[in-house]
Structures are given as structure tokens and as C-alpha cells.
Design a binder for these strands. Structure first.
Lengths: 158, 158
DNA sequence: ATCGTTGCAAAGCATTTGCATGCCT
DNA sequence: AGGCATGCAAATGCTTTGCAACGAT
């Protein structure tokens, strides 16, 4: 997979934002850049984390604004959020590629010992999703919540 | 103490509590009865829910005590908690009978529309667990967190 | 009698909201 | 110019904690 220049994904996000009829403000732009940067390093940031980094880019942006911005960006589909096992909610840019759309968002599993979040290809849950649908009529949203467990490091290092 | 027609499960829970060297207090007994009653009706109660029902049984029990009691009962293994998709944590008696739950705790899926929690046989996740283990070395704890999706009713009644 | 557990109230923390101002489009 | 977004600050809601009194064993 190629690595588009830093601004490309942010610019794409801005386009989607505008397509949704939303305004681009300094606060929103800063949030988008912060989330994009975190995505690139496989970090999973909470609202509070994002607020802290936004403060570096745009010191004038208030914490409350970060929360409102995140809500609004999720509503307009530019960002997605994932509920981790504990209680935290983390954010990332919504995947735009058609390939991802076919399977939904990638899934997440979190280590309850060290908190690490691992990304999992969505097809891992295909069979489970099919079974839940036929058995219960339940349509699984693979990427919306993380399952808990123990990661390799924490399992082998007691 | 009086002996109302307690659920055998509550008594078993009390035994486990004592086996863990913990004391039985009115607050803990009330919490156990509330959680057991909810289990029987497939309800999934949050700490706050439990507090409300405990207040009916033991009005003197303080909210803070319910939180401390839940923490302590989980620590001693009498209760288990499940992190639902949103942010809520719900509690139930730890399954003791290996006959019914050979695979460990049952799993949960939650509807993000109406909030309903469905119990899922743990074997549904067997393949996923195996794959996560071989691919990532990640040991899945099936019952510890719920996946999100849309239940039958909410999917067919927009 | 001992020591864990509880009640109380107050602190904490993350998140939300009302309102007037500001700024993106 | 108009209307949505923001800053500010206070409020909210859930959970935790310090401390002294209580009570289960």
C-alpha cells in the first residue's frame, strides 16, 4: 500500500466534509490533522487525547469544541468511532476505499492488560456475522466495538 | 438469618464469597439477590441499575457501597462484568456449572439502536478465537466485551 | 476484639449545555 | 449578511475516596 502525502487524506476528508454541507473551521481542520496523524502510526486516540494534541496546533480551540467537533464529524461520516473494551471511545478517519466498504470497517481487539489495540481484517468475523444473522437476525457491525482478550506479549510475560 | 426460597445460585455465590475469605454483609447479599434475579430474566444491569434495586431491598445501603461491593465481588470471582458497546458495564453471576458453559462465558452482542443485549453461545466465536490466536497470538476473552450491531426488530422496523 | 466494610459527603473526571460572540461561506 | 460554530463557564452525571463509625466473624 502506498503512502499518500500527509495532506492527501486530510484533503479528502475536507472534501467529504464539504460534500456533507459542513463548514471547515480551524478547530475541525486541526482535529482532522490530529486524527490522520494518529491513524498513520496506528494510534487510537480518545476525545481527550485528541483535545490535547489539538491544543498544540490551535491553542485557542476549547475542549468543549473538540467534543462537539468530533460528534459533528462522526455525524457527517468523515470520522468513525470505535468503542473499546474498557469505556473509552477512539476515533479514526472513515475508510474511503471501495475495498474496505465491501467488508465494512476493520475490526479491533484490545488487550485488557496493557490496553493495546490491534486491528483485525474484517473478514475474520465473516462467519460469525453470517451466523448471527441467520440465527438471530442480528446484523453485526464489525468495526464499531472491540473485543477484549490478552495480547501475545502479555500472555507470554506473566 | 432467615431463609427465604433463595435461588440456589445465590447460596452458591455466598459459598464462593466465603471461600474467598470475604464477609457476607447486607449490602453484598442484596447485590447478589438483585443480580441473580436479573440473570433469571436475561436483564443486563449496570451498577446504577443495581443500586436502584438494592435500594428497594436495603434502603440503608449507600450508592458508593454498591460500587465498592461490585468491585469486590468481581475481584473475588463471584460476579463477572461485561463491557457493552456504548460505555456501560453490566454484571452477572459468574457461571459455575461447567455443563452449560463448556467454552467459558457466553458472549454478548448489543443493538446500537435499542440497546438490547443478546446472549450468544460462546462457540460462535470459536473460529475467530482460533484465528486470532494463530495469526496474532491474541487470546480472546469471549465474554468480556460485547460487539455492536442491529437487532432483528430494529433492522426491519426503520 | 479485630479489621474489613459501610455511610456520608465531598472531590474528581469526562462530557455536555446555554448563551453571546465570532466567522465561514 | 446569515446562520452555524465557537469560547466560556457552569452544570451534569457517574464514579471514587477520606475518614470515622459500624458490624461480621
Amino acid at each position: 500500500m502506498t503512502n499518500p502525502p500527509d495532506s492527501a487524506r486530510v484533503e479528502h476528508a475536507v472534501e467529504r466534509l464539504r460534500a456533507a454541507g459542513e463548514r471547515l473551521t480551524p478547530a475541525r481542520y486541526a482535529v482532522l490533522r490530529v486524527v490522520d496523524a494518529a491513524d498513520r502510526t496506528d494510534e487510537h486516540l480518545t476525545a481527550d487525547d485528541i483535545g490535547a494534541r489539538v491544543a498544540d496546533l490551535e491553542p485557542a480551540v476549547h475542549r468543549a469544541t473538540v467534543y462537539r467537533t468530533l460528534t459533528s464529524l462522526v455525524d457527517s461520516g468523515v470520522l468513525s468511532h470505535v468503542h473499546l473494551g474498557g469505556a473509552a471511545t477512539v476515533y479514526h478517519l472513515t475508510a474511503e476505499t471501495a475495498a474496505v466498504h465491501q467488508h465494512g470497517h476493520h475490526a479491533h481487539v484490545q488487550c485488557h492488560v496493557c490496553g493495546t489495540v490491534l486491528d483485525v481484517p474484517p473478514d475474520v468475523f465473516d462467519e460469525v456475522a453470517a451466523r448471527l444473522r441467520t440465527d438471530l437476525g442480528f446484523v453485526l457491525d464489525t468495526g464499531h466495538a472491540a473485543l477484549l482478550g490478552t495480547c501475545r506479549d502479555c500472555a507470554t510475560t506473566p
